[in-house]
Design a protein around this nucleic acid. Structure first.
Lengths: 155, 155
DNA sequence: TATTGTTATACTCTATAACTATA
DNA sequence: TATAGTTATAGAGTATAACAATA
């Protein structure tokens, strides 16, 4: 079938995979797994967040998250504090050491990325970011209509 | 700190993650893991390929690949044949059952995708695909200068 | 009753390295 | 020697479900 958007999806996957080829090596060299770096990168440049929010952002389910955070805590990279508002909830944030790793690992990813994007013009940046921003919007809109079970597809 | 392309990378990751939110559920409902679906999707609509090529395309290392293929073989979804040219090498391809799964799982991913892209205009498609195609090219060019000269070209 | 996070189970993936059999 | 794939190992991620404490 002429499912045209399949090409978009495949392109997206190929680009993401290509980028992971870059970043994966740097991440592993720092003794971090993909899931662990996912957490570090999500917490980086934020004041911290709850397990729930962290799980939603990283697509890591709560049962798994407990273990991943535990290992990062043992490495001294993250900190857990009970929320004062909701005593069921934890607030997770990077320690100074965790922030140092974030700042240390990311430039390495960035160094590859810089090389990758060095040939980009202003216009090409705008085109890429514009296209991705639109896609992200549509994905977000689609997620909403899917998560509510009563919502059927539109004509 | 004006690393502008970091925004592109983040957008790319968010889009990919958003799409995985869609596809992940369908894939798991069919009893496939992410890695297994990765193999199925890579073998789909191809005459088959060697472990080596499969590993390069999916970023799954050879030691892991043995196990993943083994499980897919036990499920009757893939077939391994010794290459007649190079007797060290195997040729892996989907069985009819595997192809059925590919055709069965993919439309479900596609059904979500179709809804997602239903609001896309011709121009928006062109913009997205053009931007992604350029990015893929640049990533490929960057990869060559970094690691092995494995040249992958798609039509 | 619903939600946040923990624990338990069983399995899969992962990196790495040593191994075989071809080349 | 080099390459394609296997095996072994130890650790980590994963889905799922039952559970505790809190809301």
């Amino acid at each position: 079938m002429g499912e045209r958007y399949l090409k978009s999806v495949r392109l997206l996957a190929e680009c993401m995979q290509g980028f992971e080829r870059f970043s994966g090596e740097s991440v592993r060299q720092h003794g971090l797994t993909h899931a662990q770096f996912d957490i570090i990168a999500t917490l980086g440049n934020t004041p911290g967040m709850s397990y729930k929010e962290l799980g939603e952002r990283t697509l890591i389910t709560k049962g798994t998250l407990t273990g991943v955070i535990e290992r990062l805590e043992q490495k001294g990279l993250v900190l857990r504090e009970r929320s004062s508002e909701d005593k069921r909830s934890f607030f997770v944030r990077l320690t100074p050491a965790g922030d140092a790793v974030f700042c240390d690992v990311f430039p390495q990813v960035v160094a590859h990325g810089k090389q990758l994007f060095s040939a980009y013009s202003e216009a090409e940046f705008d085109a890429l970011n514009g296209a991705l921003r639109l896609l992200r919007e549509r994905i977000a809109a689609g997620s909403q209509s899917l998560s509510s079970p009563t919502n059927k597809e539109l004509p």
